[in-house]
Design a protein around this nucleic acid. Structure first.
Length: 922
RNA sequence: GGGCGCUUAGCUCAGUUGGGAGAGCACCGGCCUUACAAGCCGGGGGUCGCAGGUUCGAACCCUGCAGCGCCCACCA
């Protein structure tokens, strides 16, 4: 073993070995345990969110595997319709080509080719994270089997009347030229204007106040070309007389009615709303209520079509806006303009402003699917951790809208519907089935629907589709329902909810019993990591390290907004002046666990990972110490356990209890913290140090006891830590395990340690606390008095009780070694102590004779500080005890505890005060 | 407009049923003490956002307020 922990030397080779050996595949004898990986985009790359999520899943999986469960971590990738298609289209663009140039078949082949070449990247990165997924079962959402499941689900839903096709107003992305679901639209607040437009009253009508027009207020003047009415509130007295009359739509010349509808807010704007049923969701609904005609004025790219007057045809919607406003101005029909903040709908992929647009699309009727899915969470068949996310889930599910699932893309699962020349639609698993079922001969030409299904439609089938459904497979019976889903709160609606609905519908089972929701990974300033902001970190760079120049280049490469380059470069040079050192996978994983507290977002800070890299080094070196002291030694034979040996074993049982609890409650942070504390603050800081005097001066049986305990605790700690830091623990374990005649090939298949309450030893714990008290007391005097660390000093113990004397007897060697003493002795009751610096351990005095070591004034100052501390405590406790209501009403045990505190503090205070007087008199 | 979350040491965060305010990092002082300088030893530092209430007792429970963040929603 190297002296310093070098992760790069151990990680990659180990993973290859694990994978080759087939140890990731299910093999436990116990109950099944299964996690489905949220399938990443097949052509994507691993970002911090993945790395975080994969670490948590791997910890759970490795833990359960070591607990003996028959454990499957199902891996796979998603075809990610829009995202992947966009990447390939961008590549074509650089060659001055479009997908239309290639044609559908060639284009789809190109995407498959791209998937072949780049599809391995993310799975390679998953391997670098140490993820123990079962590669032999890897799936892809567009592989044959999964595609069959998708078609099967579509057909069955259609047959049950839950999938329908219809002309509806949908969210239309005019850049990607496809429909989007409600969830794929992000509403962003933006600054805009509220324009007032004058609509002349038709037929020469005037209002009772003499006006010959109405003023409507709108944020979208260009859509006036498609107006079908003007609406006012039915109770709005200002306009009551005009309801039923008409206005003449300017620029168009159409006569449109003035209608009353209580959707209108009389307080807003002018109280008159222009109604454009084909281009606004509210207006659409109103158009339905009032039977208004629909004037679709847009092409698929949101330029104006032939429905509008010639002057506007072909204009982009924003150019049309300017033109309409200018033309209205010219004829005196433009009113005031007000600044106005509005929510602008943008496509989450393209960023384009989404247009409500009337098209034929496929929909899933959701109400019937949602009902049992709501119930499953209500009854606890599915539980969310943290629980508050159940409310998020319920609120969306209870108001659920029908789901538009067709996309006007080429990459994805083609909709299994065929059209006959007469317009009839036939849905089936494939064309042959359609023909057979409906008796359509070869003479009837059928054309398949050109659209594909939204990616989330197939993702919704992930838990059962990957296990072989619709076949009744062994895997499905064994691993479904799965146990835990680990995912971010950003896809509860997109994915989690839809999985629950679809899985219940088609298997009658819930997809998973627990949904663990983790936070999003943000940068050290709390900003969301993104390519465009250039603040993202690549997990691989944290593992392997990266030079500053390369990091700058990487962050500024291929930016959508090149003007950001300077800023990103500056920030990068500021935040990472020396680039990023190689931390290794284990340190990264430990950091993720430590940051995963309660499902809230986490800030990723280089300081944290540095600390945990140091922790890995600490454990590595502790192992080095153990190895140096045990490899050549005889561990078999009679043993005589020291208090320290019993203490560390006892402390370890408590670690196990806490870790077990942490796994049960998904508190990865608690687990990481307890591991850190135990390894560093107990095993290394104290136990290892306590073995040193024994290994030097102890009897053979005492030495054997220490050596055995060192190895046994280390070996077991490695198993506890393995799910978090698999590489380090495997490497060290292979060196350590043989010392205990454990000969398994890998730590990952060894048993996870279980607490043994019989090995908890409260006496040993109390005694080591006492030992620590004495040592800390001496160290405090040393530190505060600036006694050189190398100087061995004399220490006396005084007063105290029999137990203190007995403890000294047993622990003399420990104290002398760890406090670096020249001598240590108990002072007889009748001998008076020399002038000393003092520390109290219980009511025993720890005395460091001042001789010429200690400065009188410094000791006085130190005493004053301690006296003040005790005085404050006495004061606080006495105040509490003086309160009769406290002594009367608080539980007796609490009162007793306070009394005990008072006694102890008072006694200490007295001793210290006497001591102070003595020193002051010198 | 509705809902949720957060506010604890300089920074990032723990604090499980209400009963002695914690960790890591940073900071100050001292050490190359034979596992580890990626280390060791000692130390300083908080009116727990604000205001009320419940209680013998509140960081924790209740109400209100403020600030920050997120989600949902049809006010043109």
């Amino acid at each position: 073993m190297d002296k310093t922990y070098q992760p790069k030397d151990i990680e990659q080779a180990l993973y290859a070995e694990w994978e080759r050996a087939g140890w990731f595949a299910p093999q436990g004898k116990g109950n099944s345990f299964c996690i489905m990986i949220p399938p990443p985009n097949v052509t994507g790359s691993l970002h911090m969110g993945h790395a975080f999520q994969d670490t948590l899943m791997d910890a759970l999986i490795r833990h359960q595997r070591m607990c003996g469960r028959n454990t499957l971590w199902q891996v796979g990738t998603d075809h990610a319709g829009i995202a992947t298609q966009m990447v390939v289209e961008r590549q074509l663009e650089q060659q001055q080509q479009s997908r239309a140039d290639l044609g559908r078949e060639t284009f789809v082949e190109r995407v498959w080719a791209w998937k072949q070449t780049s599809g391995g990247q993310i799975t390679e990165q998953l391997r670098r994270m140490g993820a123990s997924v079962d590669w032999s079962r890897e799936r892809f959402t567009m592989d044959d089997g999964f595609s069959r499941a998708v078609a099967e689900v579509f057909v069955r839903l259609y047959e049950d009347g839950l999938i329908y096709r219809g002309k509806r107003l949908v969210n239309w992305d005019p850049v990607l030229k496809t429909a989007l679901s409600d969830l794929e639209v992000e509403n962003v607040e933006e600054k805009g204007s509220l324009w007032e437009l004058r609509y002349p009253l038709a037929d020469g009508r005037r209002t009772s106040t003499g006006d010959d027009h109405l003023i409507v207020a709108t944020t979208r003047p260009e859509t006036m070309l498609g107006d079908a009415a003007v609406a006012v509130h039915p109770d709005d007295e200002r306009y009551a007389e005009l309801v039923g009359a008409f206005v003449e739509l300017p620029l168009v010349g159409r006569r449109i009615p003035i209608i009353a509808d209580d959707y209108v807010d009389a307080e807003f704007g002018t109280g008159c709303v222009k109604i454009t049923p084909a281009h606004d969701f509210n207006d659409y609904a109103m158009g339905q209520r009032h039977d208004l005609p629909m004037h679709n004025i847009f092409e698929t790219d949101a330029s104006l079509n032939d429905e509008v007057p010639e002057a506007y045809r072909g204009l982009d919607r924003y150019d049309a806006r300017k033109q309409v406003l200018a033309d209205l101005e010219a004829i005196g029909l433009r009113g005031e303009t007000h600044d106005h903040k509005l929510m602008v709908p943008r496509g989450d992929r393209s960023g384009a402003v989404v247009e409500p647009y009337l098209t034929d699309q496929w929909f899933v009727a959701m109400a019937e699917l949602a009902r049992p899915a709501i119930e499953a969470v209500e009854t606890g068949r599915v539980r969310f951790v943290p629980k508050q996310y159940e409310n998020t889930y319920f609120s969306w599910m209870r108001e659920i809208q029908d789901w538009c699932i067709s996309r006007q893309l080429w990459w994805g699962h083609r909709i299994p519907a065929w059209y006959a020349p007469d317009g009839a639609v036939y849905v089936g698993r494939d064309e042959a089935e359609v023909r057979a079922t409906h008796g359509l001969g070869a003479d009837v030409p059928l054309e398949q629907d050109p659209d594909v299904l939204e990616t989330w439609f197939s993702s919704a089938l992930w838990t059962f589709g990957t296990l072989g459904w619709p076949e009744d497979t062994e895997a499905l019976r064994t691993f479904h329902p799965t146990d835990v889903l680990v995912t971010g709160h950003d896809i509860i609606f997109f994915w989690v909810a839809r999985m629950i609905m679809m899985t219940l519908r088609f298997t009658g089972e819930v997809p998973f019993e627990t949904v663990y929701i983790h936070g999003l990974v943000r940068d050290a300033e709390g900003q969301k990591m993104s390519k465009s902001k250039g603040n993202g970190l690549d997990p691989l760079d944290l593992i392997e390290g990266i030079e500053l120049e390369e990091l700058v280049a990487k962050r500024t490469r291929g930016l959508m907004q090149p003007q950001m380059e300077k800023r990103i470069e500056k920030a990068t040079r500021r935040d990472f002046p020396d680039g990023i050192p190689a931390f290794g996978t284990d340190a990264l994983r430990f950091t993720f666990c430590a940051l995963a507290s309660t499902g809230r977002d986490v800030r990723f800070d280089l300081n944290r990972i540095t600390g945990y890299r140091n922790f890995c080094n600490k454990l590595w070196n502790a192992a080095n110490y153990v190895r140096l002291n045990t490899a050549e030694a005889e561990l078999e034979g009679e043993i005589e356990l020291s208090t320290a040996d019993r203490w560390i074993v006892s402390r370890f049982q408590k670690l196990l209890t806490d870790v077990h609890f942490a796994y049960e409650t998904f508190r990865f942070d608690v687990m990481a913290q307890r591991l850190y504390e135990f390894v560093w603050n107990e095993y290394c800081d104290w136990y290892l140090e306590l073995t040193k005097p024994v290994l030097r001066d102890g009897s053979p049986s005492q030495q054997r006891a220490a050596r055995r305990t060192l190895v046994e605790v280390l070996e077991a700690v490695l198993r506890v830590a393995h799910p978090v830091i698999p590489y380090l623990t495997e490497t060290v374990w292979r060196e350590v395990a043989p010392l205990l005649d454990r000969d398994g090939p890998t730590i990952m298949l060894e048993a996870f340690p279980v607490a043994d309450d019989g090995r908890v030893d409260e006496d040993a714990e109390a005694e080591i606390e006492w030992v620590k008290g004495v040592i800390l007391g001496v160290r405090n005097i040393r530190g505060e008095m600036n006694v050189p660390p190398g100087k061995a000093i004399d220490v006396l113990l005084a007063e105290g009780n029999e137990s203190d004397r007995a403890r000294l007897e047993r622990n003399q060697g420990f104290l002398v070694q760890l406090a670096r003493l020249q001598s240590l002795a108990y002072l007889d009751a009748d001998t008076s102590a020399p002038a000393s610096a003092i520390q109290l351990v219980g009511d025993m005095k720890v005395l460091v004779p001042m001789a010429d070591l200690i400065d009188r004034d410094a000791e006085l100052a130190r005493l004053d500080k301690e006296i003040e501390r005790r005085r404050a405590e006495v004061e606080r406790v006495e105040k509490k005890l003086a309160n009769e209501r406290f002594t009367a009403k608080a539980p007796a045990a609490v009162v007793e505890k306070e009394r005990g505190k008072r006694e102890e503090a008072l006694a200490a205070l007295q001793t210290l005060a006497a001591q102070r007087e003595e020193i002051a008199a010198l």
